[in-house]
């Protein structure tokens, strides 16, 4: 293993550089159109925070804040209109859930349909723990003391 590291074409400096670059990438905001933003920075950051929790219905694995889809842009606009109109974060999210269901939330609530989703970490822990417990190294139980007959037999064996 040591050998492999030494002969690797990537010296430590290079590795550090790669790591640095990996973490140096700024969070990607596909949307950088300043005309979309609300003039009030506090409201805008609230709108961004709300939009980050909402799924783009077209690309599905992106939030509406990150998506370039037309529908996502329309939804961003609606989020901003409602924030500017004084809706609470929950009211804005509820407005969208009423139209697109909980599917639109990237952070789905705990309900019957999502029990398995939310329960899976606990389930994995239980299963893993169970396997670890069942496979734990066990010291064999000490053998029962010899009976009188065995004692005498042992003695005779040792004596011969």
């Amino acid at each position: 293993m040591r050998r492999l590291w030494r002969s690797s074409p990537l010296p430590w400096g290079g590795l550090l550089l790669v790591l640095a670059l990996l973490f140096a990438t700024a969070p990607a905001h596909a949307i950088s159109d300043p005309s979309e933003a609300l003039p009030n920075p506090a409201q805008e950051s609230r709108a961004v925070a709300i939009g980050k929790q909402l799924r783009c219905l077209v690309c599905q694995n992106e939030s509406i804040e990150d998506s370039g889809a037309d529908l996502a842009r329309d939804l961003r606009k609606i989020v901003r209109q409602r924030v500017a109109a004084g809706d609470s974060d929950q009211q804005v999210i509820d407005w969208l859930v009423a139209r697109y269901g909980n599917f639109v939330r990237l952070n789905p609530p705990l309900e019957w349909g999502t029990v398995l989703l939310w329960g899976s970490p606990l389930l994995a822990l239980l299963v893993g723990g169970g396997i670890a417990w069942a496979a734990r190294p066990r010291r064999p139980a000490p053998p029962a003391p010899l009976s009188a007959a065995e004692q005498t037999r042992l003695k005779s064996l040792l004596d011969t």
Binding site: L57, V58, D70, L71, D74, L75, R99, G101
Partner: peptide, 13 residues
């Protein structure tokens, strides 16, 4: 034209 009614219906495309 602005697609607002479609959003009220829950249209995704």
């Amino acid at each position: 034209e602005d697609g607002r009614v479609a959003i009220d219906w829950g249209v995704t495309g």
